[in-house]
Design a binder for these strands. Structure first.
Length: 286
DNA sequence: AAAGCGGGGTT
DNA sequence: AACCCAGCTTT
């Protein structure tokens, strides 16, 4: 019989010893929210310096909402997925207008904010407000899949079974649910690693079905679109040219920064449609 | 369910 | 060169 309460207790104990001292863990809900946006598909090490600069400049949602969204895109720099900057700015505006400038604490209200999905809503509710909700990020999905399903990698998309499983652990944690949420995520990030898990220093190896099965390898994953020459690389290159030129850049300079004219035209149009750049007669601005 | 969206560090 | 990273939105 699986003793989830024991696993919860052991990983919380592990967390007490090994948790990183990440700055957003002892800051206000807005600071937590900014960190969650930046951490979407982005490693902690790259987020740390930008998060600090962002909060010094915009310490509240109202402060960010008072700026043009283009300033948010510029400050986002090369963190990646710049639409996150637009969505964070739009969320700050919504919080200022609809929530009196305070980050909401209910899942339903959080989910209504642009750029906030299931994971981010649960993370803010748990980490900033102490809500007893499952927080299912890529780390937690991997940990629970290995513990109970005996597979190295979770399914491509979140399943009902995973949600139900995560809920069992949250229930088992009781009052310690927020602590559990932080602990199991940290455990996935530091020990139960995707590539080379450190099973020798795992406090719950005794309960791991994947380990018991002999660490079967994952099925070969589908190849993503190659980066070199992709629209994503093109968009990033074009946006970087615009971002580094206060006051705007001639359209021709932007287009000439990419080696394929047709692709550059299409990507610039897409960036404009996304609201990441704006075009006047013959110049491009943020 | 699958595709599109960034960028950089690690292996 | 492939893999990975505190995902969200649209189709």
């Amino acid at each position: 019989m699986r003793d989830r309460a024991e696993i919860v207790q052991q990983l919380i104990a592990w967390f007490g010893v090994h948790a990183r001292d990440l700055p957003w863990r002892h800051n206000d809900p807005w600071a937590v929210m900014v960190s969650e946006f930046m951490l979407q598909q982005t490693p902690v090490s790259r987020v740390l310096p930008l998060w600090q600069a962002w909060l010094e400049r915009w310490p509240t949602p109202a402060a960010l909402a008072a700026e043009q969204s283009s300033e948010a895109v510029r400050a986002w720099g090369r963190l990646g997925y710049p639409r996150r900057a637009l969505r964070l700015h739009a969320s700050a505006t919504a919080i200022t207008e609809r929530h009196g400038g305070q980050v909401p604490d209910r899942l339903e209200e959080l989910l209504a904010l642009p750029g906030v999905g299931d994971y981010t809503a649960a993370a803010i509710a748990s980490f900033a407000f102490g809500a007893a909700v499952p927080v299912l990020d890529t780390n937690v999905r991997r940990v629970l899949t290995r513990l109970e399903v005996a597979e190295a990698v979770p399914a491509a998309s979140l399943t009902k079974a995973e949600r139900a499983r995560a809920q069992l652990y949250t229930d088992a944690a009781g009052q310690l649910a927020p602590r559990w949420a932080a602990a199991v995520m940290e455990f996935g990030a530091l020990v139960c690693l995707a590539r080379r898990p450190r099973c020798a220093s795992c406090p719950v190896a005794h309960a791991c079905a994947w380990r018991a099965a002999g660490h079967p390898l994952p099925a070969a994953a589908a190849r993503p679109q190659s980066w070199h020459g992709s629209d994503r690389q093109c968009r990033g290159a074009l946006l970087d040219v615009v971002r580094r030129s206060p006051g705007g850049v001639p359209t021709q300079v932007v287009l000439d920064s990419w080696h394929l004219r047709a692709q550059a035209e299409a990507c610039l149009a897409a960036l404009e449609a996304d609201g990441l750049v704006h075009r006047t007669a013959d110049t491009v601005t943020l």
